[in-house]
Amino acid sequence: MILEKIIEFGPSNKLVGVVSYPEKTDTTKPAIVILNSGVMHHVGACRSAVVIARLFASAGYPVLRFNYYGIGYSGYGDTSVRSPLDIKQEIPLALNELSKLTGVKSFVLHGLCSGARDAFSAALSDERIIAISQIDSHAYRNIHFYLNKIPRFMTNPMLWLNAIKVRLPKKSSPPTQNKASPQMEVQAWPDYPPKRNVESGYQKLTARNVKLLITYTGSWNDEYNYENQFFDMYSNTDFKNLVTINYMPQANHVMTGHGDRHYFNNHFLNFVKSL
């Protein structure tokens, strides 16, 4: 049976998370840490973090899902970030706490979107992280992306219509309530860092043999539109056999489809079992 405990940690115990413990913890196996995605709290999009945590705990892995400062049930703290590749200061605190609670010494970080980018940044500076799972992380268009896009565009009249529509002045319909409403708190995402910086980061990770589960969904098809684009984006890097690509063009960003979530979760579990 899985045991779940709420933990408070970090300075003044302001960080809040939930640990899912397996029946028996094998300290030679890694623990899983699930990161926030945007402002979504530690339950995750479509409750995905809870489902993943319970699935992994059932398979023998301790899992922590927690909130950064100011998100979910965590209190407010220093959230200053100097550059897009800087590590979130809450992450090493979370690893320390999980290590203290379970005795586990190595970690797999999982994140969606901003969480995926945070996992990458954290892995760069923390050698306890032996693998990361990224859903819809950095993406950079390349020549193959455009070569892929053109035939799809030419053969799909709906895409022409959409392209024409967005270029016409929007006279026909007023902005929707959602977009116009001052009640919307819209996330402002920083631009991706230069590709060479990200590639340099992946080179550091591969030099350390950090394993990577790289997932892209159909929602990223304006930036990532074929399975092996990852390798072409970072063509100066020898990824050896460290990368598992999981291209899910049928899925959307938060995987609202139950089947998509189920597929991903099992894929992720098999990835971790293979470490």
Partner: peptide, 9 residues
């Protein structure tokens, strides 16, 4: 629902 993670406040 959007893909930006916008929320209602």
């Amino acid at each position: 629902v959007d893909m930006e993670g916008s929320i209602l406040m």
